[in-house]
Design a protein around this nucleic acid. Sequence first.
DNA 1: AAGGGCCTCAACCGCTTGTGC
DNA 2: GGCACAAGCGGTTGAGGCCCT
Length: 309
Amino acid sequence: MRNPSAGGTKTPCCSKVGLKRGPWTPEEDELLAGYINREGEGRWRTLPKRAGLLRCGKSCRLRWMNYLRPSVKRGQIAPDEEDLILRLHRLLGNRWSLIAGRIPGRTDNEIKNYWNTHLSKKLISQGIDPRTHKPLNPETQNSSSNPPSRAPSSKPAPRARSPNPSPISSGLEETSSGSPAIPKENDQLQSADNMEAVYQNGTATAHVGQTSYLLGLRSGNGLSTEEEDLNCCGDDVFSSFLNSLINEEAFPIQHQLQQQAIGSSPDSDSLIPMAAAPAFGIGTGWESAIMSSVINQDNNSRRLNDQVE
DNA sequence: AAGGGCCTCAACCGCTTGTGC
DNA sequence: GGCACAAGCGGTTGAGGCCCT
């Protein structure tokens, strides 16, 4: 763990002197869990004092969220969870909290760690760039598939922070700052000759050839009412949409060859016809619209959850 | 057995976002 | 609109354990 004395030039998250840092003791865990079980989460800044802990609120929140919360699932990541992480990461990039939100019992920190220590290496060994999910080109593949013993593979290279520091996948339109392009009002996202997504009046519509698909996306400012939320972009619709995206046929990099070999057939349940999936060229502006949908849905769900609580 | 290198993951930091005044 | 505060997020660090020689 971090050395409590290793402050360097950085200022600690809580400037108060005398607060404990470093690993949590079982006694501290008990105090924190007991307090939250009695009083509930929230008001983290004042929680340590009320709970009798010599920790900063941030530290308490992190400990609860990542370790003590009853819903946190401990133990090995199952193969199906790993597969889901891979798919979601391809879709969302380093949006760890969004990814964690779709994997019950797993925390963003856990998924982030698992990605950095296991999955990124695994992809590299398979010749796939973990940042873009694209095949590594031969030159880099030679050097990356046998990464030097440690640092570059286990730890991502430091880089400047940006509001949306996602490495997002193959060919996704990015802003000049490196952020994925989130669709704006009246944006038209053209990804292939017969594919187009139009973002208008807070709603995204996909046109695949002659067919249109209402995606029910809404602008980042969200919804006026819960009803509107549920009607326009209900969880069922969203889940079905997201599931169709997570569906393996929508991932040409990992599955296109396989699909070409066995022949893909249209899937009427999917919002994206399977035959059209490769034409999407996942990683176009299309994916931005998808991501925007995921983010909005996540925010909306959280808001609804808050209201319920 | 000893020591060095590597790996894992809990915890921290700084920044962004949301909210209330 | 501007400010302050709280909460959330992603990147990074480093202690401790494991593995290899």
